[in-house]
Simulated scan of single mutants.
Amino acid sequence: MNVIQTRIPEVLVFEPKVFGDDRGFFFESFNANQFDAAVGQHYDFVQDNHSRSAKNVLRGLHYQIEQAQGKLVRVTQGEVFDVAVDIRQSSPTFGQWVGELLSAENKRQMWIPPGFAHGFLVLSDHAEFLYKTTDFYAPQFECSIRWDDADIGIEWPSDAKPVLSAKDSVASSLRDARKFL
């Protein structure tokens, strides 16, 4: 497994070693020992989620203010632009973001630690998105930050108008959102 550093040290991209031939391919999508060594601590993953979205669907930027979730995300069909935003007020990278193209083709995964908001934009006709979480979904603690918040300045790789959920269309600005210490 190749570990790729991002501009925010805690957010990592994992690129598997893929073994392929004319029959197909095989790769190890998760190895707890390698993951723990890369992130510098042990996390228990307690929930796996799977979503399917159409082109230009933008989900996020989501987080749970309590029962904060770390997420290990990947795409099994299609392509997305995946984003993590540091919302830890005490962090030197507070308010900064990183984004990566994740696709069924590149098989990369991104680690979004607790304390970050997360979102993605579907670039292909459809995308299937899988992620492991370090805590259970708790809707009473769920928060959203606007995808187009000027204080964050995410450079989304599409000029198309994104398709948003009702919740995401009324999300808070970073300035007004609940944040981690």
Rank of each mutant, 00 (worst) to 15 (best):
Q34D: 12
A117V: 02
K107Y: 00
P114C: 09
V80K: 00
H50D: 15
V46T: 13
F129I: 14
Q47V: 08
W111K: 10
Y43V: 12
G99I: 00
A104I: 04
A104R: 07
K107C: 03
A37W: 05
K55D: 12
R74L: 02
V98E: 06
V39E: 11
V75S: 03
G40V: 15
V73Y: 03
N33T: 14
R52I: 12
L123C: 00
V39H: 11
G95N: 06
D86P: 05
L130S: 11
S103H: 01
S91N: 08
N56M: 13
L123E: 03
V122F: 10
L102N: 02
G99H: 05
Q96V: 09
I65C: 03
N56V: 12
P114V: 11
G70I: 05
R108V: 02
V98A: 08
V83E: 04
Q47E: 14
A127S: 13
Q41T: 15
G95L: 01
S124H: 06
A84F: 01
W97A: 07
F120Q: 05
Q69N: 12
V46N: 10
R88M: 05
F45C: 13
G119K: 01
T76K: 02
V80S: 01
F81S: 02
G115R: 04
H118L: 09
D86Q: 04
V75L: 08
L101W: 08
L121R: 07
G40Q: 15
V57G: 06
V75H: 04
G70Q: 10
A127W: 06
N49Y: 08
Q77T: 08
V80D: 00
G78S: 07
V98S: 13
M110K: 09
D36Y: 09
E100S: 15
Q47S: 12
S124L: 08
G115M: 10
L102W: 00
V57C: 03
H42Y: 10
P114S: 15
V85T: 05
P114L: 10
G40T: 14
N56G: 10
A38N: 11
G70A: 08
F81Q: 02
F35R: 07
S91R: 07
W111I: 08
L130W: 15
V122R: 00
G70P: 04
Q41H: 15
D48Q: 15
R88W: 03
V83A: 03
G95I: 00
F94S: 03
P113W: 12
G40E: 13
H50F: 15
V98P: 09
F45S: 03
S91W: 10
G99W: 00
